[in-house]
Design a binder for these strands. Structure first.
Length: 464
DNA sequence: TGAAATGTTGGGGCG
DNA sequence: ACGCCCCAACATTTC
């Protein structure tokens, strides 16, 4: 009797190395891969819809994954719709008896996956979900008083105690049974699955930045493996260089790789163990890796965290939404060099240095009094590393309404920050060439006055 | 992973 | 020698 066919549903795990679900599937027999451009299921559950930058990255990354899998004899099929609709149809069409995937942790995605798992199990299909996206499962650590940590340091201490498993190797190549090849062709013919291009991940009328972003990144697990190999060099001096946006090599730029699972956090952690990295630099960088874990820990345990403030009193905060101010911020025309450089770097490259993210976010939320959700949505749409947990949690942190948050009254002065972190002005000049000339926009707000306004708004909130 | 206001201290100029 | 003032350099407090 032929070995059972396994359908491997790829989601945020677009790699072949250190892939537990892939290794387990391949060990059992022939494997067919699937990736879906997901839409909410009948109950409205599923992952958040991809932003424009994420769609671009996903498309390119999938081209690479498809080629990598092809070299292993594993076809990668593409579909569109909810998992609970498409996956059973593909399972039936292939005659697969096992489905595997790498676990995800956002409440809505987990609910959708649970629904699918139950449906498959009811029809006699074996389903296995595997860890791989995080170092620590969010439910494996908990503070004394409840299921979820709200402060980073104790979370970090507890999470670091949880052992991280060994790396998995690349799977062996396979020869797919002809009957499965034929079945896959029939699925294509009937439109259940389609070519990558038919997913329309690249907008027909792309924003003009699609080309410029492409000039700064090579998505996909092949380039990601190189980035991983370069990690020891990339984080040399990280502890002292990390706050210098003018130093293009001051950070690892691994965030989109982790977001799409082109590298696993386990691989990243292992790479920091290299002898070339000082213990100080490694621990500073690994700490950031655990901030990602913390974000997912929170996101897993706290419903609606992506759009509602964790500290509920902030639901009453007197924001003053203003489309023109938001637009000026989005396009890097606020009249403050570091803020504008950051937003323009984002628009042109799909990425922004972390220090600048904090300053730009503080400016939007505090000096401009725009709701943090507006900034979060812009980042969600334009960042190639837009992450369902990191992005909202970080915005809430800046806005002062999140976990272990910066106090609301901690208002960055963008000019002081610019002088401190870009002392030669190289970063600002790079992204805002007209800075300091007549062509540069006048400040949209006065710093002292807008700071005062933000503190007054906060005082009003506390009085309620 | 603040900034600004306010407080404290101590060296040096000066009468 | 001494008190007084200025003020830079920190330290603390407040938002």
């Amino acid at each position: 009797m032929a070995a059972p066919v396994t359908l491997l549903w790829f989601r945020d795990d677009l790699r072949v190395a250190d892939h537990e679900a892939l290794a387990a599937a391949r060990a059992a027999g022939p494997v067919v891969g699937l990736w879906l451009r997901e839409e909410p299921d009948a109950a409205g559950d599923g992952p958040r819809r991809l932003g424009a930058a994420s769609r671009w990255w996903a498309h390119r990354s999938l081209e690479v994954l498809s080629a990598e899998l092809d070299a292993l004899g594993i076809p990668l099929l593409f579909g569109r719709g909810s998992g609970v609709t498409v996956v059973p149809a593909v399972v039936a069409g292939l005659g697969a008896s096992v489905v595997r995937w790498t676990r995800r942790y956002a409440p809505s995605a987990r609910t959708a996956d649970a629904t699918l798992k139950a449906a498959l199990a009811a029809s006699g299909v074996e389903v296995h979900s595997h860890p791989g996206f995080l170092l620590v499962e969010p439910w494996l650590v908990a503070p004394a008083g409840g299921p979820v940590y709200r402060v980073f340091t104790p979370f970090h201490r507890a999470a670091a105690e949880v052992p991280v498993g060994p790396l998995r190797g690349r799977p062996a190549a396979q020869v797919l049974p002809p009957a499965v090849v034929d079945a896959a062709a029939r699925l294509t013919a009937t439109g259940v699955v389609m070519g990558l291009d038919a997913l329309d991940l690249l907008d027909a009328d792309p924003p003009w930045w699609a080309d410029t972003v492409g000039a700064h990144w090579v998505p996909g697990c092949v380039a990601a493996d190189q980035a991983l190999a370069d990690l020891p060099d990339a984080i040399a001096g990280y502890r002292t260089r990390r706050d210098r946006p003018d130093d293009a090599a001051s950070t690892s730029r691994l965030s989109p790789r982790l977001r799409f699972g082109e590298v696993s956090p386990r691989q990243a952690l292992a790479a920091t163990r290299s002898a070339e990295v000082s213990a100080d630099d490694a621990s500073a960088w690994v700490r950031q890796l655990y901030w990602r874990e913390f974000s997912w820990h929170l996101t897993h345990h706290v419903p609606r965290l992506a759009w509602e403030p964790l500290r509920r009193q902030f639901a009453e905060f007197p924001w003053s939404p203003d489309a023109a101010l938001l637009r000026a911020w989005q396009r890097g025309r606020t009249g403050y060099g570091l803020v504008d450089a950051g937003l323009r770097q984002l628009w042109q490259t799909g990425w922004m240095h972390n220090r600048v993210r904090m300053v730009a976010a503080s400016f939007l939320v505090k000096n401009l009094l725009q709701p943090w959700q507006a900034g979060e949505q812009w980042f969600w749409d334009t960042l190639v590393d837009a992450d369902e947990a990191n992005n909202p949690v970080s915005w809430q942190w800046v806005a002062g309404c999140g976990a272990d948050a910066a106090p609301y009254f901690r208002v960055f002065n963008p000019e002081t920050q610019r002088e401190r972190h870009d002392p030669e002005g190289a970063y600002v000049r790079r992204w805002v060439p007209e800075y300091g000339t007549d062509a540069y926009p006048a400040p949209v707000v006065d710093l002292a006055e807008s700071r005062r306004r933000a503190l007054d708004a906060y005082a009003l909130l506390r009085a309620r």
